[in-house]
Amino acid sequence: MIGAAAPIRARRVLPGFTLSLGTTLLYLVLVVLIPVLALILKGAEIGPERFWQIVTSPRTLAAFRITLTAAAIATVFNAVYGVLMAWVLVRYEFPGKRILDALMDVPFALPTAVAGLSLTALFSANGWFGQYLDAAGIQVVYTIWGIVLAMTFTSIPFVVRTVQPVLEDLDTTLEQAAMTLGARPWTIFARVVFPAILPAFLAGSTVAFARSLGEFGAVVFIAGNLPMKTEIASLLAYIRLEEYDYIGAAAIALVLLVFALVLLLVSNLLQIWAARYREVK
C-alpha cells in the first residue's frame, strides 16, 4: 500500500538556511532598520508645519544646495575617471599595475578625517598645490571646490570597483565583431562597450553620489564651514545636535535619508532599464 508520502525536498549542499537567514535578518534590523525607523519617528513627532519651517529656512536650504551641487560635481568627475581607470586596469598590462589597483582602495581604507587634513594642508594658501593656485587667483580651501575635492577623494573607488569586474567579463569578440562591421574605436565604445557596462556604471555612480551627500569627516576640514556658503547638510545637522536642537537635527537628517532612498530607487530603476535585454523569457 502506498501511504501519503511526505513531500520530497531537495537537500541543500550546506544546511542551516533558517539559522543563517535569521541571523542576517536580526543583524539588519538591529543595525540598520531600527536606527532608520527611530529617525523617521523622531521626524514624525515634529509635525509637518514645523518640519517644513526647519527644512526651508535659508541656512538649511543653502546647506542642501551646497551639498547637492558639490556631490553632483564630484560624481561627474568620479564617473568619468572611474570608467577610464577601470579600462586602464582591465585592458592594459604595464609595470606597477597591481600597485595601482591596490591604490584604488586607499580612499576606502584611509580615515576620512586624515584625508580632509591632508587635502587642506596641500591646498591651503601655503601648501604644495595651494601656493601656485593661490598665485593664479584660484582658491580651493574654504570654497565649494574644497568640498568637491574632499567628496571626490572619498568616493573615487565606487565607480572603478563596480565597472572593473563587468569590463573584465566583457567578451572582446563583441568589439572584434564591431570592428569587422566597420565601426571606428569611438563608435565601438559608445555602441558596444558602454551599453554593456551601463548598469554597473549607474550603480557605481549612484553609490558614489550617495556617499558624497553623506561625507562628513573629509569635508569639514577643508570646507571652512561658513553658514550659507560652505556649510554642508550633515554638518548643519551636527551643529543642531550640539545646540541640543534634536528636532532640527532630525528634520535635516530625515531629508538626507529621503535623498538617499530616492537615489537608491532611481538607481535600481535605471539598472533594470539598462539590463532589460538580459531577461530571458
Partner: peptide, 22 residues
C-alpha cells in the same frame, strides 16, 4: 588595411551578437 576597411563578413564561433540590441 585595418579590419574596418576590409569589408569582410566575420561569423564568430560563439556568434558575438550584441546582447543589448534587438
Amino acid at each position: 588595411l585595418p579590419a574596418q576597411d576590409r569589408r569582410i563578413g566575420f561569423v564568430f564561433q560563439h556568434y558575438a551578437l550584441f546582447p543589448h540590441m534587438k
